[in-house]
Amino acid sequence: MKTTIGITDKNRQAVAEHLHAILADEFVLYTKTRNAHWNVEGADFYDKHLFFEKQYNQLADMFDRLAERIRFLGHYTPATLKQFLELTHLTEMIHETNDSLGFIKELNEDHNTIITEMRKIIVPIAEEYKDQGTSDFITGLMEEHEKMAWILRSHLR
Rank of each mutant, 00 (worst) to 15 (best):
T4I: 15
I5T: 12
I5Q: 12
G6N: 08
G6W: 10
I7Y: 08
D9M: 09
K10T: 12
Q13D: 15
Q13W: 04
H18Y: 15
E26G: 02
E26V: 02
V28K: 00
L29P: 05
Y30N: 06
Y30P: 01
N35G: 06
A36Q: 12
V40C: 14
E41P: 00
A43P: 06
Y46P: 00
F51P: 01
Y56D: 07
Q58I: 03
Q58L: 10
L59F: 10
D61P: 00
M62F: 11
D64V: 06
D64S: 12
L66D: 04
I70H: 05
F72P: 02
H75R: 12
T77Q: 10
T77K: 03
P78M: 08
P78S: 08
L81W: 14
F84A: 11
L85T: 12
L85Y: 08
L85G: 01
E86T: 09
L87M: 13
H89R: 11
H89S: 15
H95T: 10
N98D: 14
D99R: 07
S100P: 00
G102K: 03
G102S: 13
F103A: 05
I104K: 01
E117A: 12
K120P: 00
K120E: 14
I121V: 15
I125A: 07
I125S: 03
E127D: 15
K130H: 14
Q132R: 12
D136H: 11
F137D: 08
F137R: 07
I138Y: 08
G140P: 00
E144W: 00
E146K: 06
E146D: 10
A149I: 09
S154L: 05
R157A: 13
